[in-house]
Simulated scan of single mutants.
Amino acid sequence: MRKWCEVHQVKYSQFYYWWKKFNGVDKQSSCQWLPVTFSDEKEEPSSLLVHVGDAKLEIHHPFDPVLFRQVIKVLNEQ
């Protein structure tokens, strides 16, 4: 178990705690361990939807804050 924990970067004490906790679970239960995979890819932040009067602006990252202020100013004048 220690080698598995080392390879998967899991603290042995945490693994052992959960292993002991679930080791007492009814053996007839349908509980199963499933593999979990992680990705190093960073997700882009979601877009922001801004309503100004009847106009709807969808803002994505990265954006130009100066242009955004100008657009809001123009929309507010209408």
Rank of each mutant, 00 (worst) to 15 (best):
R69P: 01
E6H: 03
K3N: 06
D40V: 08
L48D: 05
E43H: 09
P45S: 05
Q14V: 11
E6R: 05
K56D: 07
K27G: 08
P65S: 02
S47F: 00
K27E: 14
D40A: 12
V74R: 13
N23W: 04
L34A: 09
G53F: 02
M1G: 10
S13I: 07
P35Y: 06
W19M: 08
F15Y: 15
Y17D: 05
N23K: 14
P45I: 05
A55S: 15
L57Q: 03
V7P: 00
V50Y: 09
P62A: 04
S29M: 07
D54A: 05
S29I: 06
D40I: 06
F63H: 09
S30K: 11
K21Y: 14
V25K: 02
D26G: 10
S30E: 08
S39T: 15
W4L: 04
N76I: 01
V71T: 04
M1C: 07
S46P: 11
V7T: 11
E44H: 08
S13E: 15
V36D: 06
K11H: 11
N23R: 12
S46Y: 02
V66H: 09
A55E: 15
R2D: 03
Q14G: 06
I59L: 05
S46I: 01
T37D: 02
V74E: 12
K73H: 11
M1W: 07
R69K: 13
L34E: 12
Y17L: 10
S46T: 12
W4Q: 07
D26P: 09
D40H: 06
A55M: 13
W4H: 13
D54G: 01
V52W: 07
S30C: 03
E43R: 12
P45V: 06
S13Q: 14
V50F: 13
K27R: 13
K11A: 12
Q32R: 12
R2A: 05
V7K: 06
Q28R: 14
V50T: 09
Q32A: 13
K27N: 11
V10F: 08
V52F: 07
S46E: 11
K27V: 03
L49F: 06
A55P: 04
K3C: 01
K21W: 07
Y16A: 12
C31Y: 05
E58Y: 07
P62K: 03
W33V: 15
V25Y: 08
M1P: 08
Y16G: 00
I72C: 08
L75G: 03
G24R: 15
Y12R: 02
R2M: 04
L75I: 04
K27F: 00
Q14P: 01
E77M: 08
E44G: 09
E58H: 10
K11D: 15
F15L: 04
W18V: 08
F63D: 06
V7Q: 07
V36Y: 12
F68E: 00
S30A: 07
R69T: 07
Q78E: 13
Q70I: 00
K42W: 10
L57K: 03
R69G: 07
K3R: 12
F38D: 10
K56H: 10
P45Q: 04
D64H: 01
K20R: 15
S30I: 02
L75A: 03
H8K: 15
D64E: 00
K73T: 13
I72M: 08
A55Y: 14
W19P: 00
K56N: 07
S13P: 04
E58M: 11
K20T: 09
F68W: 02
T37K: 07
K27L: 03
F15P: 00
M1S: 14
D40P: 05
S13F: 04
V10A: 08
